[in-house]
């Protein structure tokens, strides 16, 4: 968990330092990709807490989710169907579910620690 926060801080720092520039017309795709990425990370944290973490599934899910979500948003823009809603609903729901699981596991751990004695 701590190493994830350190990574996030490093990423924010790099984002400010590196001379990257995103064309303004791509912001909507970027936001969808960001949501997919967050979903994957929460899923990864949850799997790790449950002891089911598999790095291959995690990494392929991370990039796969981002690519599919961005492609859906782009394709929806081209054909006039707001397909990015699908991505938002799916990833948003899963985000909350993952967070709920993480919370349960976390609380269980604390309970086991303090109520054993």
């Amino acid at each position: 968990m701590i190493i994830a926060l350190i990574g996030l801080a490093l990423g924010v720092f790099l984002g400010f330092v590196l001379p990257l520039d995103l064309p303004s017309s791509y912001t909507s795709y970027m936001s969808i990709a960001l949501l997919a990425a967050l979903d994957s990370v929460f899923g990864g944290i949850r799997a790790e807490m449950e002891g089911k973490f598999d790095s291959h599934i995690f990494i392929s899910g991370f990039f796969g989710n981002i690519i599919i979500a961005t492609f859906l948003a782009y394709f929806g823009d081209r054909v006039g169907i707001p397909l990015y809603y699908a991505a938002i609903f799916t990833f948003g729901t899963r985000l909350f579910q993952n967070f709920a699981s993480i919370r349960r596991i976390f609380l269980n751990k604390i309970e086991q620690k303090y109520y054993k004695h």
Binding site: I3, G11, G15, S24, S31, A37, V41, G44, I45, S55
Partner: peptide, 28 residues
Amino acid sequence: KIKGRVEIAIICVIIGIMIVLQMQTIGN
């Protein structure tokens, strides 16, 4: 376990860069 966390950390770096990019673009 440590190996798994390193991967999460690397991906967190990517997410951090994405967040900053998005924020800066929308701020602009």
